[in-house]
């Protein structure tokens, strides 16, 4: 193995890594979409205050947040079949990542919802609004801006966690870099490229989220 950087080799493997990047972005996007929706569902369910539902759900969320994501990915993919649930690496991976991050996002939403002053709920009630309208039109729009910073952190987080999908063979960046390494016995260039690609995507995302937050606040008149 040589630590001499080879540009020629770098250019040669770049297209393959770019394709893998598409998969990484896809995995992050799908995983995050699942997490956003599921997280909101969890946050709202926890607010119902119906003990038979909230107690197990709260425990489940704590459990998922306290165990490693990579273990959860293994579990869904390798243990699932023993219970007759046979899922492809992609589906398993998306379920594991989406579920894992939905637990974090539900906490972000919860904090955002709790930050909405009680007077807003009371005003909605005084206008005789339904619970659904109160959430959809009054509470969630106000809970959103303070949640965006936290949501942005987890978007970057989910993106950086996608390499864990390589353990079950999803052809994302990390897995592709590994494959290139074992085929060519050169690891320096593929791994470096993976790092650079992650950096180039993470940094603008964080900046974009800050812009987005400012835009949402303006849009909502706050």
């Amino acid at each position: 193995m040589s630590f001499q950087w080879k540009w020629e080799f770098t250019w040669a493997i770049l297209p393959r890594l770019m394709w893998a990047t598409v998969n990484t972005l896809l995995a992050s996007g799908i995983g995050y979409a699942i997490a956003m929706v599921l997280g909101l569902v969890f946050a709202l369910l926890l607010r119902t205050g119906w003990k038979p539902l909230t107690l197990p759900l709260r425990e489940a969320i704590e459990f998922i947040r306290s165990t490693p994501l990579v273990l959860q990915i293994f579990f869904v993919f390798y243990v699932g079949p023993q219970f007759g649930v046979r899922l492809s690496p992609w589906v398993s991976g998306m379920i594991a990542i989406g579920l894992h991050y939905s637990c974090y996002l539900s906490e972000v939403y919860r904090a955002g919802i709790e930050a909405v002053p009680r007077g807003q709920w009371e005003a909605a009630r005084a206008l005789n609004m339904s619970t659904r309208d109160t959430y959809m039109r009054i509470v969630i729009p106000q809970a959103l801006p303070p949640s965006i910073a936290g949501m942005g952190n987890y978007l970057v987080g989910i993106f950086k966690d996608t390499p864990m999908l390589s353990v079950i063979g999803v052809a994302e960046l990390m897995q592709t870099a590994n494959a290139i390494g074992s085929e060519t016995y050169r690891f320096l260039e593929p791994y470096t490229l993976v790092g650079v690609i992650f950096l180039l995507l993470s940094l603008p995302t964080a900046a974009f989220m800050r812009q987005f937050e400012a835009w949402v606040r303006r849009k909502l008149g706050m």
């Binding site: 339904s130 039109r137 106000q142």
Partner: peptide
């Protein structure tokens, strides 16, 4: 006492919210 207007709506939207939605 503290008005409790909806901060993400204009004065007019605040007034229209109940009549339209409810």
């Amino acid at each position: 006492q503290h008005f409790n207007l909806f901060p993400h709506m204009t004065a007019l939207q605040n007034c229209m919210e109940g009549p339209v939605q409810v």
